[in-house]
Design a protein around this nucleic acid. Structure first.
Lengths: 335, 335
DNA sequence: CTGAAAGCGCTTACAG
DNA sequence: CTGAAAGCGCTTACAG
């Protein structure tokens, strides 16, 4: 068995209370006794048991973080932002992959509660009702990252997805495109995708570009997903001059499929993405896209959680972080 | 405050012992009392406190996992493999980023010990002596993922990095290349990079290709890193006909820099990578590389940890998983 | 400045 | 089949 506080106390000839005091830097300990205790800790190689401490203190210094899939590059930087901030404030994170499945989300939420997480971070595309109920029926602080709550009930940090989609669509229109397809998430419950669609439609309407509903294709947020969608577009539909894909990987797949069909991007068709993955800059053609400050989304989310725990007041439920239109080489100006 | 086992007991008119028994599915409970307890749990919305349970049971059902940087795509799939297996066996993971810095590695190791993790997974490029000492002075099971221990002291799962480097170098030589540069990790302590260098040299020697020591360049495992190394190579050195980069991103950066210099890959210079990132298939030119079963490395590591915890005997300390040479379009056959 | 004791929320050996 | 009680390893109010 490991050495416990009791063993250190015996070794230093003091009570466990005194050992605990020096461990926690509580000042009212005589310097000499303190030294004895420090020595004893050193000699015994004592490591405090954080579980016992947590039980007593009702605080675990750990956050639960739920993410659709850590192996998708997008979410990865969010997690890094979270962890870096947690590290500063001595928190750790328990990480779970939900695959955006409500059942997993709810299960992990319960796990986080049972493991007494001090806070929960939900990174994802949208909230299901079951999870909303759970969040509302507990007092554990929850922060949403990269997604916001349509009702403004929960704290969250995200870009303005509607505006971002508007901006990139507007850019396409300004480049002369009037026939624009929309490659979106197959997951219809994605709040983020819904918001982006709103922005897409707003731009179309504002500039009086007719929207062709058959141009909305739903698929996976992956290279393969975009590849397949492009195939579908190419074989079945009149070819648009441009595509808004809601994800850079999707855009990349679409580009490769277009190339396989003998089309040049952007000469024959323009394709934009979303999220500005690191590779999007190096891919050829370079992907014109919307950048989100992914790391910051994570870092700010963690900071908010820590603030809530420490009873700072939070000024606004939703923090909107800036997005940016990154213009590269996947769009051609026509006319 | 939350509802506790005591509250459920009162509600169901039984003792806490009985509630605990039904919670843990201990059979010797009368069906009717059991029903009363289940109802009471339902009614009160009771969630067991895993921290209290852990303290009593001396088991937390959580693993600590250390990784250089979760925002690097390579490690990401390893973590997913770990988490999927953990999920099956009801474990959770605490995730930490070390940036391969010994100080962080040792700090997090202590954190994992203090938080009473049932096991620790170390994913990385090499082990520093401080960490080795810590591992050896504790009885917490540790498994190494993607890296092996040069001395065979610890359990681990990885590919045979020496052989993998040999294989890809041999391929280059068979394609007629006799002047081959080596782009390696700037982190000299990387055991994995050392192993790969051995394999590289063995192939050179075996096929009597002269090794030009000035062709070994050290840089970052990133697109930018490869870009910079290529610049260095191009401006300072006689141009080799091929490059072995120890990382696909590095290879991609090198390719882009070569292109910026007006060179065609592979026509003017052949470049191979390592690790087979998902994007490596879609990049142009497609990257010839060594594939590692990253997900499996994570999944197997987690399984080993669980086996150790359950006192299964582990046949061999080091599990070698297969690597694979993936031939794409970044190498030209010359002569 | 220091110690004895209670208590955090569970599990389980023991007794009945 | 069920309960009272001890104990997991800490922290801290209280007393001295």
């Amino acid at each position: 068995m490991n050495v416990k506080i009791k063993d250190v106390a015996r070794e230093a000839n003091v009570s466990v209370a005194t050992v605990s005091r020096v461990l926690n830097n509580i000042p009212l300990v005589n310097d000499e006794t303190k030294k004895r205790v420090v020595d004893a800790i050193e000699r015994t190689g004592y490591k405090p048991n954080a579980i016992a401490r947590s039980l007593k203190m009702q605080k675990t210094n750990t956050f639960g973080i739920m993410i659709p899939d850590i192996s998708k590059s997008y979410y990865t930087q969010v997690v890094r932002g979270v962890e870096d901030v947690c590290n500063i404030y001595d928190y750790n994170i328990i990480l779970c992959n939900t695959d955006s499945e409500p059942a997993k989300e709810e299960k992990y939420f319960d796990v986080f509660i049972e493991k007494q997480c001090d806070g929960i971070l939900f990174i994802g595309k949208g909230l299901n009702q079951g999870l909303i109920n759970k969040i509302e029926s507990t007092r554990v602080p929850v922060v949403l990252g990269a997604v916001s709550d349509s009702m403004g009930r929960f704290n969250g940090v995200a870009i303005n997805n509607e505006q971002a989609a508007y901006d990139i669509t507007k850019y396409l229109i300004e480049c002369g495109h009037t026939s624009i397809a929309f490659f979106t998430d197959e997951d219809e419950s994605s709040f983020v995708a819904q918001e982006r669609k709103k922005g897409f439609l707003r731009a179309l309407k504002k500039y009086e570009v007719k929207e062709n509903p058959i141009y909305e294709l739903k698929g996976k947020y992956s290279i393969k997903g975009g590849y397949d969608l492009m195939e579908e577009l190419l074989t079945n539909l009149e070819r648009p001059t441009a595509i808004v894909a809601l994800n850079d990987e999707m855009a990349m797949g679409a580009i490769r499929r277009a190339e396989d069909a003998g089309l040049k991007v952007p000469d024959d068709i323009s394709i934009v993405g979303f999220n500005n993955f690191q590779i999007s800059e190096w891919f050829r053609p370079g992907i014109t896209t919307i950048a989100q400050p992914m790391y910051d989304i994570g870092a700010i989310s963690a900071r908010i959680l820590i603030k809530i725990i420490n009873n700072y007041k939070i000024d606004e439920k939703t923090i909107t972080v800036p997005h940016e239109l990154i213009i590269r080489d996947s769009v051609k100006t026509i006319k």
